[in-house]
């Protein structure tokens, strides 16, 4: 039984989706890291004058 090759358009679409997903995840991870590193407060001692 011979397999029907995927249409070229579908292969391109899948590749685009995969690339977009990868870029989105990388950007999201980088953004989350940057926010945590440079923006989000990390309080070790809340009231130093106490």
């Amino acid at each position: 039984m011979s397999q029907t090759p995927r249409p070229r358009r579908r292969r391109v679409r899948n590749a685009v989706i995969a690339a977009a997903t990868t870029v989105t995840l990388a950007a999201g991870g980088g953004t989350a890291w940057a926010l945590d590193r440079f923006v989000v407060d990390h309080v070790e001692i809340a009231d130093v004058s106490a």
Partner: peptide, 11 residues
């Protein structure tokens, strides 16, 4: 004096 009277990062 510390910002927000607290010790840590990004404060």
């Amino acid at each position: 004096a510390f910002a927000q009277d607290a010790f840590g990062t990004n404060i």
